[in-house]
């Protein structure tokens, strides 16, 4: 078990957005998170990365690192949690004043203070891997959406996280650019990365994931292997959601 989440609860003021979430992510597994808009998918990912601080709950990692949110977090815990996961945003959030290469080197070079020559080599390798070997010195505004998102993935990979988090990585993209980003994610899956992916691409979720969770109103309604959850869901809410996505009126 790479990560075990217990009793995760998050509220914004009065609004309870995550209600007692329990979740296990196996090492090398890919978790797909689906569910209607506003169900708390993004918030769940953001809690894993402490961009939002949970109100309650506990994360336990396989290396023994454990954080309990019932009491205020210490700075060191936040830093360590962040170090474990890399985040890929729906809207890329690349640094517009830095080139593709600089976007990728920023974390390892400035934060992790690794030697420059090593970091540049690492960044070049990662950018080659995501198919941007020839675009390294371009600025984000000179890249297409799909290319920008691949830089976003490279930037997250460069900090050498143990878990990659993707929040609807393709939903800001033109349809013809979706494929190139999904392909990069599939390659990462084949390399054995542990990942959690919020997505509306059900076909992709089925192909790539080991486990699917369906969320609604801040709760995990159903979870299991993709064939089970996506092909023969047991819960009515899951069935309705899938029906709506598969035949939109």
């Amino acid at each position: 078990m790479f990560l075990s989440v217990k009793g995760l609860t998050k509220a914004f003021g009065e609004l309870e957005v995550l209600k007692d979430i329990n979740l296990d992510i196996e090492e090398g597994n890919i978790l797909a998170i689906i569910g209607p808009s506003g169900s708390g998918k993004t918030t769940l990912l953001r809690c894993l990365n402490v961009l939002e601080v949970p109100n309650k709950g506990e994360f336990t990692f396989d290396d023994g690192f454990k954080v309990n949110f019932d009491k205020p977090m210490r700075k060191k815990e936040i830093t360590e949690l962040r170090r474990k996961s890399g985040m890929v945003f729906q809207s890329y959030n690349l640094f517009p004043h830095k080139t593709a290469l600089e976007n990728v080197t920023e974390g390892p070079l400035i934060v992790q203070k690794r030697p420059k020559s090593e970091v540049i080599e690492l960044a070049e390798n990662i950018l080659n891997k995501v198919g941007l070997g020839d675009k390294m010195n371009l600025y984000p505004h000179q890249l297409s959406g799909g290319q920008q998102q691949r830089v976003g993935i490279a930037r997250a990979l460069a900090i050498k996280p143990q878990l990659m988090l993707f929040d609807e990585p393709t939903s800001a993209l033109d349809p013809e650019l979706v494929g190139e980003v999904l392909k990069v994610i599939k390659d990462l899956a084949n390399e054995g990365w542990t990942m959690a992916i919020v997505t509306h691409e059900l076909k992709f979720a089925e192909q790539v994931s080991d486990q699917v969770i369906f969320m609604d109103e801040g709760q995990i309604v159903e979870q299991g292997p993709p064939e089970a959850v996506l092909r023969s869901p047991q819960k009515e809410r899951t069935q309705q959601f899938l029906k709506r996505i598969l035949n939109p009126e």
């Binding site: 830093t79 962040r82 996961s85 959030n93 974390g107 900090i159």
Partner: peptide, 22 residues
Amino acid sequence: PKGQWEASQTIGMSYSQALRRI
């Protein structure tokens, strides 16, 4: 945009690093 702060945080930057560099 807030996303710039968040992206800085996710690659591990402190407040002052994010402020200065991003």
